[in-house]
Structures are given as structure tokens and as C-alpha cells.
Design a binder for these strands. Structure first.
Lengths: 155, 155
DNA sequence: CGTAAGTGATTGACACGTCAACTAGCTGCC
DNA sequence: GGCAGCTAGTTGACGTGTCAATCACTTACG
């Protein structure tokens, strides 16, 4: 009858704290950098990256939302803002009266092409370069393990 | 004259993607859970946790901000909202006319005491339980390595 | 003493994310 | 055909984070 302990062990707690701390600092620095270097938000970056990479600059709204695993509402607001900034436009879908294509503008293409190498460089500098190939591999395995585990867990 | 390559290798890219994906899903699920279980936001939780843990429920504004590594502006907004919700109050600091103490109310103490075990349980369920002790240890080392590396890097 | 510089904290404007409610077009089925 | 229910996408309200400006107080130093 061993009940689950109420708290984490010292080691577990320390590991959790380190992970959270690292992840916050890393994401924070990267997104501030993208913003400063390219004038785009991190969200703009992801959307444009996936849109051009996967759809060649033109994708159905929902396909894009599923691709980046965002709620449709989030995507809708985001696309609205990006439209204002001139990065994308919307086009009606002839096959489905409800549907829409989201299309990268020339400015959008240019923005992502300029931003991508700079961003990659920051990922390398702050993250990849911190680790040996073995460590990087270990982290990838661990990440995938956590992901797989989460998928089995309810909610 | 080996220039830094413009892109990441397949393995590096895959590791980065896994890490980002895992981290987003994990943080997302945890914060939705805290919100649903306790009615507090993830930010409320952290603030109350640190405030009670470290300061016994009473801390100087800036000390708290430094502890959680937040900008003072963010903390100010957050404390304002938490005051509205009745979780904390502000008290003037007699030693320094500019300063303020932020103090957990009875409701704040109760909220964090109820939320903490539930939150820990989710961390365990979604994260700790996914990994062997060795993997957890490896992740902690890797996190600390990335943190240490980032501190040496400018900006 | 007095004032310039620094520190503690607030504020306002704006970008972003979430949730729930809503509109509009499509699909299945009688 | 017609309507029930599903899917695509929008909207508005609200909570949150960031940045820059501001205010009030304290400290250093001449």
C-alpha cells in the first residue's frame, strides 16, 4: 500500500526546476531575438516558416492550424494581424464556400527568407553549441519519450 | 576556413523540433490544468508558491521579482490582478517610502496549499513518470549545461 | 544643504492567447 | 427537397506580457 508521495524527491524537484528554468530562458531569448532581428514575432515566424516550407506559401487555413497545432481561433487572430502587417493575404476557396487559403505575400516570403538563417544561427549559438552530439541525441530521445508518454495520459 | 553551415543537420533539426514540441505541449497542459483545478493562472501559482515558500507569505516587491526572474512591470501588473482576486495585498514599507511588501492573504495561503499537491501530481504524472531516474538526471545535466552556456553568451 | 543620479514601483498602450458564442456553408439521411 | 448536425472560420471579451515613459523617494557627492 505505498501511496504516491505528496512531494517530489530533491533530485526530481531539482531536475524539474532546471528544465523549467532553461526552457524559459531559452525561449525568451530566442523570441526576443527574432523580434529584434527581423521585426517579426515568434508566431509570425512559425506561421511563415510552415506556410512556405510545407505549402509553398499557400495553404488552407485549417491545414496550417493543424500543422502548427494551434486552435483555429488563435490562428484566425494571428492571420488577421499578419494580414495587417502585409505578410500574408487571404483568398477564398472555390471548392468550399466556408474555406480560405492563406497565402504568403512577396513581403512575407522575403521576411522569412531573411529571418530563417538568422534564427537558425541563434538556435545553434544558444542551444546546439551548448551540447555534445551525444547530449543532443539524449535530449531528443527524452523529449520524444515525454511526448509519447503524454499522449497516453488523459488530458 | 570552414564557415558555419547555414542550416542545422537533420539530427540537430530533429532534436530541436522534438524539444520544442515537447516543451510546448507539456507547459500547455500543465498550465491549463492548474487553471482548471485551482482557478489560478500559472503565474498566480508561481508567485504564490515562491512568496510563501521563500518569504513565508511576505516579501519585498523587487525581491520577489528577482526571485522569479520577472521584469518589475510584469510583476506589478500581476500583483495588481492578484490583489483584485484577493490572493495578495500590498503593504507600505516603513524603511523605504518607495517600497512595498507583497503579502499573501488567508485566501492566498489556502489557494496555494490546495493547488500545490495537485500541481505536483500533474508534474509527476506527465513528466517525471515518463522518464527513468537516469533519464531525468541526464535531462537535469543537459538543462544546466544549456543554462550555463547561455549565461556566457551575449544577449 | 542641495541637486543629480539611481532605485522602487506604477501606468498605458499595445501584441498576444484563450474561451465561448456565433455565422455560414456543407453533408448525410429520411 | 429539407433539416439535423458537422466543419470552417470569425468575433469579442478578457487575462496576460512587453516596452517605454513616468513618478516618488533615496542616495551620493560636491
Amino acid at each position: 500500500m505505498n501511496a504516491t508521495p505528496r512531494w517530489l524527491t530533491t533530485e526530481q524537484q531539482a531536475a524539474w526546476d532546471s528544465f523549467i528554468h532553461m526552457q524559459e530562458k531559452l525561449i525568451g531569448r530566442l523570441s526576443r531575438r527574432v523580434q529584434a532581428d527581423s521585426g517579426m514575432s515568434a508566431s509570425d515566424y512559425i506561421v511563415l516558416a510552415k506556410l512556405t516550407e510545407t505549402g509553398g506559401g499557400r495553404m488552407r487555413f485549417m491545414d496550417l492550424a493543424k500543422l502548427v497545432e494551434w486552435e483555429k481561433s488563435r490562428m484566425s487572430h494571428q492571420v488577421g494581424r499578419m494580414t495587417k502587417r502585409g505578410l500574408v493575404t487571404k483568398e477564398d476557396c472555390p471548392d468550399d464556400g466556408r474555406g480560405a487559403f492563406i497565402v504568403a505575400t512577396a513581403a512575407g516570403h522575403q521576411a522569412i527568407e531573411e529571418a530563417a538563417p538568422v534564427h537558425v544561427e541563434q538556435v545553434r549559438r544558444l542551444f546546439i553549441d551548448a551540447l555534445t552530439p551525444e547530449e543532443l541525441d539524449a535530449l531528443a530521445r527524452i523529449s520524444n519519450r515525454v511526448l509519447a508518454h503524454m499522449e497516453k495520459q488523459p488530458d
